[in-house]
Design a protein around this nucleic acid. Structure first.
Length: 262
DNA sequence: ATGGCGAACTTGGTTCGA
């Protein structure tokens, strides 16, 4: 079973890339982030024609997540408030960043973690609070199943080897201590980075800034991945970053990451 | 210290992303 994650930075701009990619990479599940479109305008048919069921949770202009699955999902939950009945959860759901469904007994949690802007920004505090809410959400999900795959754009590089240049990383968004600790605290619930089961190498990135010829120079960050509970981590047989779509004309700034189970 | 690039909406200049 293959589960891919890809921040495509607008589904309407990138639909041809996604179709082209799926034709050579017919994964079972594709989790997308930053669809940037209201549900009514989501271009379903392109992907349905390839044999996928489409699950979407979108909003105007920003954020938005989607799951494509060859097998219909069970127990689809939109946002935090799908599981968490708190005022805070409802407030966070104004931004569409969380979509969960179950397939083959595996809960797939598709996430677009807030970027946070910069460490002195209000958005940074929002990001930390959001991660805290995610932890509560996962605690509840863990009471229901031990087979969980969280994947998506985490907007956090967990280790220095996940950044092309970790100098000054303490003050940089996506690498500051508080962000890493917030993510680490979630992982301590019982999740491991699937990508790191297979390589401890640096220089492996999933996002490159559009500016400063970052891709050409491989000045990237590894911020997109799959975190797995131990039952799934044990049966993970591969995790790779496919850099090819980043070489295409008018690409997303992120590229797909593919997990293989069994 | 700033802006670079790309996308969406407010459709042309602004806001946001990472």
């Amino acid at each position: 079973m293959k589960i891919a994650t890809w921040n495509i930075n607008s589904i309407r701009t990138r639909k041809d890339h996604i179709v082209q990619w799926l034709q050579t990479n017919p994964v079972d599940i594709l989790c997308l982030q930053e669809t940037k479109v209201i549900d009514k305008d989501f271009p379903h048919s392109f992907f349905e024609d390839l044999g996928y069921q489409i699950y979407i949770y979108g909003q105007k202009a920003y954020n938005g997540v989607a799951i494509f699955s060859k097998i219909p999902l069970e127990s689809v939950h939109l946002g935090f408030s799908g599981f968490l009945n708190t005022e805070k959860a409802q407030e966070f759901d104004e931004q569409k960043r969380v979509l969960t469904g179950i397939v083959n007994g595996i809960a797939i949690v598709n996430l677009y973690v807030p970027n946070g802007s910069s460490i002195d920004s209000d958005k940074y505090q929002y990001k930390l609070n959001w991660l805290n809410c995610l932890k509560d959400y996962l605690k509840i999900l863990l009471t229901q199943t031990k087979n969980i795959c969280i994947c998506g754009d985490f907007n956090i590089a967990l280790e220095d080897i996940d950044i092309h240049n970790p100098k000054n990383r303490e003050t940089h968004i996506m690498a500051s201590d508080a962000e890493r600790q917030a993510l680490q605290s979630i992982l301590e619930l019982g999740f491991q980075d699937a990508f790191r089961k297979f390589t401890t190498e640096g220089g492996q990135f999933s996002w490159w800034d559009y500016r400063q010829a970052s891709f050409r120079r491989n000045s990237g960050w590894r911020i997109d991945t799959h975190y797995l509970t131990s039952s799934l981590y044990e049966v993970a047989s591969n995790s790779i970053i496919d850099k090819i779509p980043r070489t295409w004309e008018q690409p997303s700034d992120h590229t797909p990451v593919i997990l293989t189970l069994e």
